[in-house]
Design a protein around this nucleic acid. Structure first.
Lengths: 392, 392
DNA sequence: GTGTCGGCCGTCTGCCGACAA
DNA sequence: TTGTCGGCAGACGGCCGACAC
C-alpha cells in the first residue's frame, strides 16, 4: 500500500508523499490504493468548471449508462506537481465494478500516505510583506525553527548554519540560517530571495518546511486562494473538457475498463473520489433529516482548520434532470456564523459530522465545548429562508 | 466578414487580427467566417497529442457516426492569446451540415483577415544573445527600422525618439529608439529589458514589430520551436481530452448542433479546419498518383518560409482501422533533401502543389528555377524504401 | 551591417541592528 | 516575539563606443 509509483509531472523523479500532502492542504486525504471507492462525475465536472471559469450553461450530451455515483477499484495513484507553478495534483486509475461485487461492510482502510505523517515534523508560515520584499530575508518563527531545523551552535557569534531543502521537483534550495538581531531572532538570508523569485511568491502565500526521519529537509508552497489557478485552456474548449470527463467515465462504466482522472485538491471545490466505507457510513445507519445539526471542518485563510456549525435545511437532488437520485451535494445547509458567501450552500453527507449520533462517537475536543449558547431562533429563521430561496 | 468578435483570452480587449496572424507564423491561414469548411477529427486529435506529449496508445471508444471528414459551417472565429506566455490560439464555432447541402462548386472565399495584411508593414528578428542579455539593449536591423519605425530627426545628436507599441493583450510597451555607436546603428535601449524579462524571452525567440494604417505600432513574439509549449495537463488526463474531442464532434455530428474547438497554430502539426473549396480542389480533378512530384511550403528555423520538393511514395489510410477512407495525411512522401526527421513522412493532399498540372498554374518564382539537376535515381531509391518501411 | 565586449556610473539587492507593535 | 525600517556596501543593470566578423 505504501509502495507507490509517484512520479513528477512527466519526468522520472519521485514525489515525496508527505510533502505533497502538506502542499495539498490540511484537509486533503486520498483513498488507499487497492481500495473500493465511489467516483462522482458531478464532482469531477465541478473541478473542470472551477478551473475553466466556465458556466455550465451549454448543452451536454446525456450518458444514460453513467450513474451519479460509480463504484470503482482505485488501482493506482501517482502524485504530481505542475512544473510551472508547483500546483499539486494526483492522477488516479479507476476501474468500475458491478454493484454485485460491492462489499456489504467494507472496512475503512487507512488513507493514502497516512503512515508517513506521524514521523515527520513541519511548520508553515504565511509570508509577510517583509518576507517577500527584496529588501531582506525571511523571518522564521522561533517555535518553528526549533522544531524542524537542526539546533544552532550558540557558542559561535553569530550562530549560523547552511540549510538544504528539496522541493516537489526534487530541486535543491540552499539557505543561510542565522540567529541575530536585537532582540535575537531566526532568519533565512542568503538564498531566500532566489527562492521567492523563482516560485513567484507574494505576501499572503504560505511556505512550508518539513524534516523527515532521516533529517532531510523539504519545502513547499501553498498559494493564497485569491490567486486563480492559471486557466489551462487554449487547448480544449471547456465544453469538450466536460464532455471528455463524462464520456470517458461512461465508456469505462459500460465496458468495466480502467480510466484515468486528475484530482486537483487546490482547485476542486470538493473531493470526488470517496472511500466506499466512508460513503456507506455517511449514508446508511442514521438517516439524515431536515433540521439536523452538524459540524464541518474547513480550511481557514491562514492554512489551518476550523470546525463550523450548521443545520440541514433541505435534502434533494442538486440537478434533478441530469443526475436524479444523486448523493452529490444532496444536503442544503445553513451556517450558524454569517460569514456567508464563502461557505457552501450545499454539501454531501460524508463531508459533515451529524450531531444526533451518540456523543461517545464524537472526539474529545468537541465534548469539551459541546454546549454552545447559539440563539436557536436565529437558526430557525435561517432554516425557513433557505427552504424558500434558490441556490445563489 | 471582417467584423469579428475577437476577444483576448477571457477578457474584453479586442485582439488585433494582423498581429495575431504574424504571431501565428507565415504559413497560417484561417478560413473565412460563414464559409463551408472540412473539420478533421484526426488532425484535432494530433493537436491534443502533440500538446500533451502523449502517445496515442490507449483504447479510445469508437464513434461510428463520426466521419473522418466532417463538413461544417464556420459560424465564428475569435482570436485569443494565452495570458501567461502569449501563445496564440483561435476559437472556432462549427456546425455540421448534411452532405446534401454541400455546394458542388464552392467559390474560394478570401482567408480570414487577409484584407488587413496588405496595408500593414512589419519586420521580425530572431533574438541574439546580446539582445536578450541584461548587459545592453536590442539591435534593430537597419532595413527594419527604416521600414516600420518613424524616421528619426537626424539633426539632433544623437537622433532618438520614444516608441510605443501594444502587444496581443493591448498592453503598452515603451522603448527608447536611438541611432548611435560607431558605426552608427539603430537600437532600442530603455524599456527593452523590461519587455524581455516580462515575456521571458531567450536567444532564438523571435520578436515582431508592426505598423498599421494609422501609424500605431504593435509587437509580438514567436518562441523558438525547441521550447515545448507548457504541458497544459493537471486538469484532464490526455485520454479524457482525446475522448472529449471525439465525443464533442460526434455529438455535434449526430444532432447537427454547434460545437467549439480551439486551434493552436504553433502547437498543432497541421491545420485541421480546411476551406471546403481548398479541400475539393485538392482532391478532385487531377488524380494524385504514386511517383508524382510536388512542392510544399514549410516554415524555416528563422521564421521565414521555403519550398521543399518531394515525391509521392504511397497513397493510403493513415489509420485503416479507426479512420478508413480518410484523406487526412493519406499521402506517403519522400523528400529530395535529406534533412529528414523534421519533415513529415505523411501529408494531406491540400498541403502540397503537385507538379503535373500545367506549368502556367505555377507561380513565376518556380518557373525561373524549374530545371533542377537532382539525381532521379536517388529519388527512386527513396521511393522504394519508403514503401517498404513503416512510419517512424 | 551588426554581434559582442570593456568601461563606467547609477540603481537595486540584500545584510545589519534599531525600534515598535 | 516578529514585522518594518534606515543605513550601508557590494552586485548588477544598463548606456556608451570600440572592435571584429
Amino acid at each position: 500500500m505504501s509502495h507507490v509509483s509517484s512520479l513528477a509531472g512527466g519526468d522520472k523523479k519521485a514525489i515525496n508523499q508527505a510533502l505533497w500532502l502538506e502542499c495539498a492542504g490540511p484537509l486533503i486525504t486520498l483513498p488507499a490504493i487497492g481500495s473500493q471507492v465511489v467516483y462522482f462525475p458531478q464532482g469531477h465536472s465541478e473541478q473542470v468548471i472551477a478551473s475553466t471559469h466556465k458556466e455550465a450553461d451549454f448543452e451536454v450530451p446525456s450518458y444514460p449508462n453513467l450513474p451519479p455515483q460509480l463504484f470503482c477499484i482505485l488501482h493506482n495513484i501517482t502524485l504530481h506537481a505542475d512544473q510551472e507553478n508547483d500546483e499539486v495534483f494526483a492522477q488516479m486509475t479507476l476501474q468500475p465494478f458491478s454493484q454485485t461485487a460491492l462489499l456489504k461492510d467494507p472496512f475503512l482502510l487507512p488513507d493514502f500516505g497516512i503512515q508517513t505523517k506521524q514521523t515527520i515534523v513541519s511548520f508553515s508560515k504565511t509570508l509577510t510583506a517583509s518576507d517577500t520584499s527584496t529588501h531582506g530575508g525571511f523571518s522564521i518563527p522561533r517555535r518553528a525553527a526549533e522544531k524542524v531545523f537542526p539546533p544552532l551552535d550558540f557558542t559561535k557569534t553569530p550562530p549560523a548554519q547552511e540549510l538544504v531543502a528539496r522541493d516537489l521537483h526534487n530541486n535543491e534550495w540552499h539557505f543561510r540560517h542565522i540567529y541575530r538581531g536585537q532582540p535575537r531572532r531566526h532568519l533565512l538570508t542568503t538564498g531566500w530571495s532566489v527562492f521567492v523569485s523563482a516560485k513567484r511568491l507574494q505576501a499572503g502565500d504560505t511556505v512550508l518546511f518539513l524534516r523527515d526521519e532521516q533529517g532531510q529537509h523539504m519545502l513547499g508552497i501553498r498559494r493564497a486562494n485569491r490567486q486563480q489557478t492559471n486557466l489551462p485552456t487554449s487547448l480544449l474548449s471547456s465544453d469538450s473538457m466536460l464532455i471528455g470527463v463524462l464520456a470517458a467515465a461512461a465508456h469505462a462504466a459500460s465496458t468495466n475498463s480502467r480510466f484515468t482522472i486528475f484530482y486537483n485538491p487546490r482547485a476542486s471545490p470538493s473531493e470526488f473520489v470517496i472511500p466506499l466505507a466512508k460513503y456507506q457510513k455517511a449514508l446508511h445507519p442514521p438517516q439524515l433529516t431536515v433540521g439536523m445539526r452538524f459540524r464541518m471542518e474547513m480550511e481557514t485563510e491562514d492554512s489551518s482548520t476550523r470546525r463550523y456549525m450548521g443545520t440541514i435545511t433541505g435534502i434533494g437532488d442538486l440537478d434533478p434532470v441530469r443526475w436524479p437520485n444523486s448523493h452529490w451535494r444532496s444536503l442544503k445547509v445553513g451556517w450558524d456564523e454569517s460569514t456567508a458567501g464563502q461557505k457552501q450552500r450545499r454539501v454531501s453527507a460524508w463531508e459533515i459530522e451529524p450531531l444526533t449520533v451518540p456523543f461517545l462517537l464524537c472526539n474529545s475536543s468537541f465534548l469539551l465545548r459541546s454546549k454552545r449558547p447559539r440563539a436557536f431562533s436565529g437558526v430557525l429563521n435561517t432554516l425557513s429562508l433557505s427552504l424558500a430561496e434558490e441556490e445563489l
